[in-house]
Design a protein around this nucleic acid. Sequence first.
DNA 1: GAGTGGATTTCGCAT
DNA 2: ATGCGAAGTCCACTC
Lengths: 244, 244
Amino acid sequence: MGSAVDLVKAALSERKGLIIVGNCTVEYHGRAKSKLEPGDRIVILKKDGAVLVHRPSGYEPVNWQPPGCLFQTDLSKGVLRIRAIRQKPPESVKLFFSNIHLVAATSLVDAGEFSLYASEEDMQKAILFDPTLIESGFRPIAYEKKVDPGFIDVYGIDAAGKFVVVEIKRKTAGRNAVLQLSRYVQAIDGTMNREVRGILAAPKLGKGVQRLLETLGLGFRALDARKCAEILTRSKIRKLEDFA
Amino acid sequence: MGSAVDLVKAALSERKGLIIVGNCTVEYHGRAKSKLEPGDRIVILKKDGAVLVHRPSGYEPVNWQPPGCLFQTDLSKGVLRIRAIRQKPPESVKLFFSNIHLVAATSLVDAGEFSLYASEEDMQKAILFDPTLIESGFRPIAYEKKVDPGFIDVYGIDAAGKFVVVEIKRKTAGRNAVLQLSRYVQAIDGTMNREVRGILAAPKLGKGVQRLLETLGLGFRALDARKCAEILTRSKIRKLEDFA
DNA sequence: GAGTGGATTTCGCAT
DNA sequence: ATGCGAAGTCCACTC
């Protein structure tokens, strides 16, 4: 236990990462507060001040802090105590280890690039690259256009010269997506003397959403994020700025 | 490396947890897809089939799977390969370790209870326990009352016999909270022949929200989640059902 | 099984 | 700094 404390102290002072596996309790005070009774957990303290406390099961950490924490540690009556303190918002996570199974100080090097495909942004790029994904004759004018309620994903003119507002969802579109699109159309409609159409581009519609779309006079275009990613792979367009 | 593979295989077949620190690449295919170039990472495979791939910095895992994955592993040309496969939705995370710094098979026991205080639900409970938190003379009738647009947090009658709809936010209330409250008031108003008031209970209001509230004729009551938690600590009320 | 809303959400971007 | 919306969100809960 004593050697574990030394290792922990050394690692924290050297801004190294730490992995600790052992029996502990956890207290959290901040935006909310929580208490975790004793049990075996995996704790990761990262060099940027992030904290993760993982139970043996589950995806989410039971306690945590985003990057930016300062660490304090000491040994008192056989209990290794670690405090992670955050300034904004003022929060703290306190760990009390009564038993330690494993401690590892790490100096990890990771410069590997991470690439994610088939996000909503990919769908947006694909539409700008090939506007016929929306409909024949559609010509985009702008993307991320600011209007009162928020940002319009894609905005343009159709074959007949009408304005078109496109709302993109990478998953099944629900009521909220339709209402959002509707608000955008209303907002544009109020400033234009030309007819404004709204088109929802998503892989599919939730139950009853089709009816709502029709009621509000909005359109739908089936569009799959994966296919959009493939279109981009075949094109040379990589950045949104390419369409500026 | 060979011994690491044996340890990994043994751990996975015995449904133990695994912690692996080493240099790897990661591929993800599923709802989206991603590629992570080589670098040092901390990988946790939990006994329930959860996967976490952590970089040396940051709160969020760069790749992951929620519980329910099946694991496969093998060694090929000095590369330890681990595949985590999920059925619904069909997804996979593939790890390729070229170098392993640490492997630990774990059999963690964690039965410790976790308690979280000061959630939105706690504010709701506190209001039901002490309705004067809203205003003197307020009497709650129902909570989580279903109306067309959603659920009303708390619903009751004020000192003058008017209906009151209370919308609770545990953080600063924004425009959406006001609009949500407004929709609830409209919905109730349409079914009642009595005047309906709307009160937003939150620690504070976002910018411009005060004006919006006034425009819509709605009220505001400052209410702090921490204080609600303390009130509940002093009371014996623990479950919403206690107010049924 | 799908739909809805919350989260100690976190994160990123724009005002 | 604040605000707003997306996320491979996850998760719990209702219909």
